[in-house]
Design a protein around this nucleic acid. Structure first.
Lengths: 266, 266
DNA sequence: TGTCGTCATTCCGCCTGACGGAACGACGAC
DNA sequence: GTCGTCGTTCCGTCAGGCGGAATGACGACA
């Protein structure tokens, strides 16, 4: 890394980020994920625990972060309003249905996950994917964006993707086929993940959060393909996702107006 | 600190927490706040910057955290639903009126700040107070809680406070005087900070977020006493705080119902 | 333009703090 | 009771982190 930085601190922050990627982390998992020797990991974890950021509970299966970690990010509030508005709805969805929800916004030629309820989900072994950029043509959250955004924006995005050499953008090079695929997504009313990308053990269904003709964000639910057949997942969760997206849209409108729900002026 | 922890990591996390307490931090400020020598601070900051957590911009006046810090806390989602529901409303309030807003919930015999828009406020030199416990009889957010909660709960809290030897709990020892003070707060419809506690350069006005007869949370706005006279602050912001509290309450109801605003079933 | 004060940054000799392989303890499966 | 695996502890080693002093940058002021 760059000259004159503190290697112990780099290691500690890598470890802390990994701790935040699932609800509970074992020493074995952290060893695999970071490559650090276990004595080093335990020493770092003891340091986090002494400061209150982490607790260790063998009954829970390992180490987990505490509410104090919020003080390490409290100074950053740069998410769009739609992400803030989406948070409570996503949390409520996961509480009710157990599967984790992600909220993503456009980030250049992909969508970036800005909120995830993976840590809230009791059935999810998935990793928190905050800041992960998801491709527009292969990932559900991305496809939901590019399918439902205005045609001018879609054309621009397809031109950007056509110039990419990323294999996951390859679908954008055959423009007619891409437009046909996206038309199918619009007709279906939701997007799912391409069958050609990993992981195969799970799948994601996503819908857009619209404001007028604009896509503000996309929201998706991820589930194990072995736990529920795809057709059943679609039948059950697409209506619920659409309802949640509608609620998020309404929250955004109310927040921007500063008005009250059930306002007589409507 | 405890045996076998990593001192460099403890220092780094102290520094990172301080960086999160205001929008921009100078090396001088960080030196005063943490006691670390400046070369140590610069080396740590270079480490954070190399990893992407911090940027340095002399034009901005120093160092500030980036969106990546969210990955250091993304695994913790333990806030009550009312705090999640309150977040976007608090952010919208600060964008509109500039003064920072805090959201607090009961935490044993005090209220704890669970969300603050201090980093979003352009006029605020206040420090983010996430996790700070604020006393029930002397702080606005605390007083708003104990004044408006159900009588049984208030009696229990007053008994707990009467046994405390904290000077800020002293007002609870004269039960009749305490009840009189709290009755005045209820009549006024809002709480402010006791004139006997620091800092004197600022003040806070707070109101409860009610659900039925329960107080879910309290929300308050903090302002410079030199920038706006108290009477004017009250006249201007109390109605706005009440409106925001009402919106938060409605959001909580909708989230718990999973229903849509303007639902025809009403 | 030159000087001054203050802040940020760099240098580098020092030494102790962090390291990690080996060993040990705990625990569940068989 | 034995075994495998995971978590934890030990401790000799050495290089990583330290911080006072020096230097650079910059704005205020005459």
């Amino acid at each position: 890394m760059t000259e004159n930085t503190v290697e112990s601190v780099r290691r500690a922050l890598d470890l802390l980020r990994e701790l935040n990627r699932q609800r509970v982390s074992s020493v074995r998992h952290l060893h695999h994920a970071t490559g650090l020797p276990k004595p080093t990991i335990v020493r770092m974890l003891d340091t986090f625990a002494a400061l209150g950021y982490v607790v260790n509970d063998r009954r829970q299966g390992g180490y987990q972060v505490t509410s104090l970690v919020r003080s390490l990010s409290a100074g950053f509030h740069g998410d769009p309003l739609v992400v803030e508005a989406a948070r409570p709805w996503a949390i409520a969805f996961t509480r009710k249905f157990q599967w984790p929800v992600a909220v993503a916004v456009l980030d250049r030629d992909a969508v970036a996950v800005r909120f995830s309820t993976i840590p809230d989900s009791p059935v999810s072994p998935f990793h928190v994917t905050i800041n992960n950029r998801l491709k527009l043509m292969s990932r559900a959250l991305g496809r939901a964006y590019i399918a439902f955004c205005p045609p001018n924006e879609r054309n621009l995005l397809l031109r950007m993707l056509a110039m990419s050499d990323d294999p996951e953008d390859e679908a954008a090079r055959d423009r007619d086929a891409a437009l046909t695929l996206l038309a199918m997504v619009r007709r279906a009313g939701f997007a799912d993940r391409s069958a050609t990308v990993e992981p195969k053990s799970s799948s994601t269904i996503a819908v857009p959060v619209m404001l007028g003709r604009k896509v503000l964000a996309t929201v998706g639910v991820t589930y194990f393909t072995s736990a529920i057949p795809k057709a059943e997942a679609i039948a059950r969760y697409v209506p619920l996702l659409k309802e949640m997206a509608k609620n998020i849209q309404t929250s955004v409108v109310l927040l921007e107006q500063g008005g009250a729900p059930n306002d007589g002026a409507h």
